[in-house]
Write a protein that binds this DNA or RNA. Structure first.
Lengths: 187, 187
DNA sequence: CGCTAAATATGATGGGCATCATGTAAATGT
DNA sequence: ACATTTACATGATGCCCATCATATTTAGCG
């Protein structure tokens, strides 16, 4: 059954949203095409009308979610605090796509790697601009170092099977990043 | 054909070494049991004489590689520099198992998560002890923050599909971590 | 020196999944 | 209104892989 052009666009959007959440939650390999379509309220049959392959879905999903991911627009300290929170750690499906997917990108097709690279570029640029009162070189270093620490800490916290230790990794990293930003901005 | 007891122990060791390298290189899902056995110079048949399942292999491989992973014993600055080097980024198969596998642990069985948790504990303890002249609380914060940044930077650098940007992430993170350690140790 | 148990090899088995083939019905343009 | 195109549904197909069954060889013990 054919659907209206706008219905089709909405379906495509729903597929990308569903894929985005499922991939972040379970990883690329653990999510089947049929599962994505079902989560979008469709069956697996129409999939290849929207995407040429699962790899294509992965690449387009990354472009979709990284474009939407705006974090860091406002107060940097608040952003760091919410990023390094138990809430974010426990919400991979709705959380930062970099924290959830960056490590898996290595094993994906070139288009996916390229989408992730552009997403990282803009994310780091945004953080650099949100850093107060730094010259450009210091700001960039702080943006990259802080973001690496944030991503690493969330990945480690999600891997750790001991709530107290996991919380500690988040909290100590938050303190460390805060201190680092303060030091550099005071120089 | 039965083999000697020591031959069997050596075979087991070879399986774990092969699995360790393959998992770090390609990820848990992309490596088949048969592939591991072949890399160890055996066929897939004997696998279940050594391990009860692929999950069991994963857990035992983690325990094996994390126990062997001693990095950070000597000079901390040199360790950070080699960790955040293009060489390490390009050598996932032989590199830090945390950088290669931590993000995938979330999707593994409890035994694997537990092995990773213990490995992270000892790794962070080792870094904390290698930090010169800090009181315990500052040293622990620096150890966690630095390690998170190192792991995050290597993961990001491996995801990025642009050599210059990838190098930049490594180098800026190295400078950021160095500065952070200096600041704290001067306090 | 033979007997037995164990380690590995060869060869199924069954399920899951990406992808393809075909049917169907409704949207769109004329 | 009608023809045609097209978006989606249902239902294969074939591959890969974890796991199991069985055969074979030989270590280890008496």
């Amino acid at each position: 059954m054919k659907v209206s052009r706008e219905q089709m666009a909405e379906n495509r959007h729903r597929i990308l949203d569903a894929a985005s959440r499922l991939f972040r939650d379970k990883g690329f390999d653990a999510v089947s095409v049929a599962e994505v379509m079902k989560a979008a309220g469709l069956t697996h049959g129409g999939f290849y009308g929207h995407f040429s392959s699962k790899d294509d879905l992965i690449a387009q999903t990354l472009a979709h979610v990284l474009a939407a991911d705006s974090g860091g627009g406002g107060d940097l300290r608040a952003y760091v605090g919410s990023y390094l929170s138990p809430r974010h750690r426990d919400n991979a499906a709705g959380g930062c796509p970099t924290a959830g997917l960056a490590a898996a990108i290595r094993h994906q097709a070139p288009a996916a790697r390229s989408a992730m690279t552009e997403g990282l570029r803009s994310q780091i640029d945004r953080i650099g601009k949100a850093l107060p009162g730094l010259d450009a070189a210091d700001g960039r270093r702080a943006a990259i170092g802080s973001f690496a620490a944030m991503v690493g800490a969330v990945i480690l916290a999600r891997a750790i099977d001991d709530p107290a230790f996991s919380d500690e990794v988040l909290e100590q990293t938050r303190a460390w990043v805060d201190a680092g930003i303060n030091q550099v901005s005071a120089s």
